[in-house]
Design a protein around this nucleic acid. Sequence first.
DNA 1: TTAATATGCAACCCGGAGGTTGCTTAAAAT
DNA 2: ATTTTAAGCAACCTCCGGGTTGCATATTAA
Lengths: 115, 115
Amino acid sequence: MSQRRRSRRASKRQARAPVFAALGDETRLSLVAKLCSGRPYSISQLTRGSKLTRQAITKHLRVLESVGIVHSVRSGRESRFEFDPQPMEGIKEYLDFVSAQWDQALSRLKAFVEE
Amino acid sequence: MSQRRRSRRASKRQARAPVFAALGDETRLSLVAKLCSGRPYSISQLTRGSKLTRQAITKHLRVLESVGIVHSVRSGRESRFEFDPQPMEGIKEYLDFVSAQWDQALSRLKAFVEE
DNA sequence: TTAATATGCAACCCGGAGGTTGCTTAAAAT
DNA sequence: ATTTTAAGCAACCTCCGGGTTGCATATTAA
């Protein structure tokens, strides 16, 4: 593979770790699971049914927002959070890359054994 | 969907956050990228070319090992680490679930607008 | 106008994550 | 037999993540 492709992938990978990290928490996975239904939720709505404080939930939402998984829209006195799919599509690409590498490895092994 | 399915998915999600968290670090993403080629690497080999200490790399490997992404095989004086694909397949399922939810949301929106 | 609701901001606590250094032990190489 | 090389263990440091409480502010409801 060319040098350009390599560095391009490396620079993309640079941006993926924070997305994985943002998903590395049960609370935030739950929030994403709710928000990916497409319906916007206010902070208070997302707090109801959770054992955590509103501020804790807010912090988690800010983490998700900082990597672009959600964004907030202020509406009157409440701010509604909405899901944004792009970052998660991004890390899917990484996982697909890893899978592809692994499949190639298995193929090489198989070819070696069968020869 | 049935209650059983819901709880089964919830229990799976329980196990996914640590996997995401394990991938939420540049150094560990690099390690995974190397190891998914199928070739086993010793700790020293993985340390060469990194700016970190051997012990730092070791800690990262233990994190990956703790969620089953890699496992180590002792061979003489060195311990070789090998990639293990299952956990990453697991989080793919979660990402697919989120995508499916989101696609449904878009479909509903489209149907609503067009009616 | 007053009370209730939704949010923001700041300080603070605590534990763990990421990293280092130093020392020890085990294998391999010379 | 001695010296490299590979790795494990433990102590230590610093900083950030997750969470809380307290107070201030802006909207909405009564």
